[in-house]
Design a protein around this nucleic acid. Structure first.
Lengths: 205, 205
DNA sequence: TATTGAACAATAATCATTTTTTGTACATTT
DNA sequence: AAATGTACAAAAAATGATTATTGTTCAATA
């Protein structure tokens, strides 16, 4: 029995990619290879076609422009990360541990693969991505169930609105992935957990 | 009696600018004008000299390189913002109101002046600035006294470490200035206040 | 019917060349 | 003393001709 990847309704918006279509996968894989090697600016549709062993025309059949292809590659990368992380999350019991894990996973993800390569080759492009609110939209559907659970167990205040806590957690997680140190050094797992414990729960350690 | 601008020890590091020196002010003013008009890339030291009606040699006397001049202009902009905001802050009684005010002030500051013009002319440069941790360093010395006060009045949990809350407030404020909406629409003063109330205090509205 | 490949104008990247700017030095002026 | 202005080599940016890429169309192919 094949378990389908988790895709929340709020992510469906428009333009959902069909990862079951082998042509889509071939294009995305080829594009990812190219971006990894040369960055976005220096990869052409022709190069993607060559690497994927298909025609340029076919690529344009699925992605109406280079920009859309790049968006698709990034989107898949993110969805993979979220699915992977979501699976690991079930092993953790507390919200604090879940956020800690997510931040550490996020940092790890940034140090390898597309983002790491872009950080070297085209840092400005990456910076622009990170400042686009759309970039974080997909992370939002992730948290509400975990937050309700934490409210049920009394780990966090059940009177606070779930959408507020969701927003807070995403903002914090993003910030912590980007900046391991802002005021306090939060690079290590231990420090990060202690910080989140105090900051999210605001009662006892 | 002239009250000196507030410059915390942690901001002194090295390279503090002397705003009492009229030559420094003239250079910074001229540089600011140029960046406002043309952006960073398209302003030359010669142009700054012409606008400021001084010699290129004099500029290099005070700023060893263009990069340093730009840094000085940004630094002054930030310090002005922090001083202005800090003054207004004393009128507010609660931490929630202080953070609300700071975020709104921060957004306002971004919509005019250097940052707004850079956002149009050189968005990548601005994006790179925003992702540099140093950019936020100056905001940190700002908060501890206000946080201690809020702990004393019982507004926030006095058991949580002051440096942790400081870190949290800066991360949150930065995020809220950058992204008025992440999960929840927090563009309006009212929504922002309600959000911060719940998220920072975690007890009663 | 999906994919291919070739043709095509419009747009964008590349590259060698020219021009400007940078950062330093120093003699001159205020 | 501080500010100016000129000169200078090295670095960076503007320029313009050339090449490559984009996105579209469509007939041929599998």
């Amino acid at each position: 029995m094949v378990k389908a990847a988790v895709v929340a309704m709020s992510d469906m918006q428009f333009n959902a990619l069909n990862y079951d279509d082998p042509m889509v996968v071939r294009i995305l894989d080829a594009g990812e290879q190219c971006i990894l090697r040369f960055g976005i600016r220096r990869t052409s549709m022709g190069e993607v076609a060559r690497v994927g062993k298909l025609s340029r025309g076919s690529i344009y059949r699925y992605f109406s422009a280079k920009e859309e292809l790049v968006e698709g590659i990034i989107r898949r990368q993110q969805e993979r990360f979220l699915n992977r992380t979501e699976q690991q999350l079930d092993k953790e019991t507390t919200l604090v541990d879940k956020v800690t894990l997510s931040v550490l996973a996020g940092r790890k993800d940034m140090q390898a693969g597309i983002f790491a390569s872009l950080a070297e080759v085209e840092p400005e492009t990456l910076a622009m991505m990170f400042l686009d609110p759309k970039f974080y939209h997909r992370s939002l559907s992730f948290w509400p169930p975990h937050i309700r659970m934490a409210q049920a167990t009394g780990e966090i205040n059940p009177q606070v609105r779930v959408d507020f806590v969701t927003d807070l957690v995403v903002r914090l997680a993003v910030s912590l992935v980007m900046f391991p140190k802002m005021g306090v050094e939060l690079a290590s797992r231990k420090a990060l957990r202690a910080y989140l414990q105090q900051v999210l729960c605001a009662e006892a350690s």
